[in-house]
Design a protein around this nucleic acid. Structure first.
Lengths: 179, 179
DNA sequence: TGCGCCATGTAAAGAGTTACATGATTCG
DNA sequence: CGAATCATGTAACTCTTTACATGGCGCA
């Protein structure tokens, strides 16, 4: 009825890096794809149980509740099938800052400029972060390197665009009515 | 327990443009902020009832179920208060295409290039759309004009960055292994 | 008369988050 | 031993979408 869950593919994909516990899975997800994908424990554990029932993952050692999970052949197959499907549309995200700006005429003076300034700070932090990440990934010697690099470049591209837009927006506000 | 709903502010903001039925509200939202904000009827109608109970909106005519809604003084106050709050973080969105690329090594050959090509098409459509929108808004003679323009420029900035990234990604894939 | 649009609502279901509860292991 | 970390899981709750049900109005 709603869109199907994609959590499972993040899990299956991450397990191609090797067997892992649910806890470590969450850590890895945060460290590698955290910029565009997050999972909570409340989501992960039920998903793992479900995947086990479907035979897409299995416990490595014998049935101990604390053994790491590993992906099965069927799991790899499911991952490959998903990779071939078209990703969901790119637009739907909600952007609260834009909503505030759209109705910005009703804000008290200076409020929007404050929002823009904070937004810019966050973008600059993100840019520094991505820059470091890019260096790390570029130095990586892994068959995944190119793919990872592309995702980092996406972050850099968005942040760059965000910063240019931020400056543009501030200039437009100044034209409108200099503080 | 989860994040508070922002639907109400889209509603209150939209009602600053004048009294409207729920149906028209949905239409207006889609036409003006649809690029970064959407609402469904299943969300709108309950929200309107709740806002009425809180005294933030009221029916224009007398109690007829089909009269348009209008914003009250308290509603304007609530809108202004929200405008002064800091918007939620900019990052959290999930991006399925990036997830696919991150695990792209396990995809069949050519699959990622296909995804990128379709993604590019959609971006180009979006760019054309935004360009038209920008012309429309620029010609507008409204006190909201500058604010609206800023949101359109945001769309243009993102689309531009997306297109550059798309080309960059294709080039990286070619380096990796030309088809 | 019938079609299409305007209009309002409810029901069902899923996705996802946060908070809580619980226990093992490790290490100083 | 005590604290921090590793680890698993559940419960409650919210948001949100989709589908369904219903009816008035305009007009060709």
């Amino acid at each position: 009825m709603t869109r199907p869950a994609k959590t499972r593919y993040a899990v299956l994909g991450m397990l191609t890096h090797g067997p892992m516990t649910g806890y470590r899975l969450r850590e890895q997800i945060r460290e590698t794809v955290g910029h565009f994908w997050q999972e909570s424990f409340g989501q992960l554990y039920p998903t793992l149980s479900q995947l086990e029932q479907e035979g897409l993952v299995r416990r490595g050692g014998d049935a101990d509740r604390r053994d790491p999970w590993e992906i099965t052949a069927a799991g790899r197959q499911a991952l490959r099938a998903w990779l071939a499907t078209e990703a969901e549309s790119l637009s739907p995200e909600r952007n609260e800052l834009l909503l505030q700006i759209f109705f910005g005429r009703h804000a008290d003076p200076g409020v929007l400029r404050g929002h823009l300034a904070r937004h810019r700070e966050r973008l600059e932090e993100a840019r520094a972060h991505y820059a470091g990440l890019e260096a790390l990934v570029a130095a990586e010697d892994s068959p995944d390197r190119t793919y990872w690099l592309i995702t980092v470049r996406h972050g850099l591209a968005l942040v760059g665009a965000g910063l240019r837009w931020n400056a543009d927006a501030a200039a437009l506000l100044d034209e409108e009515g200099p503080v």
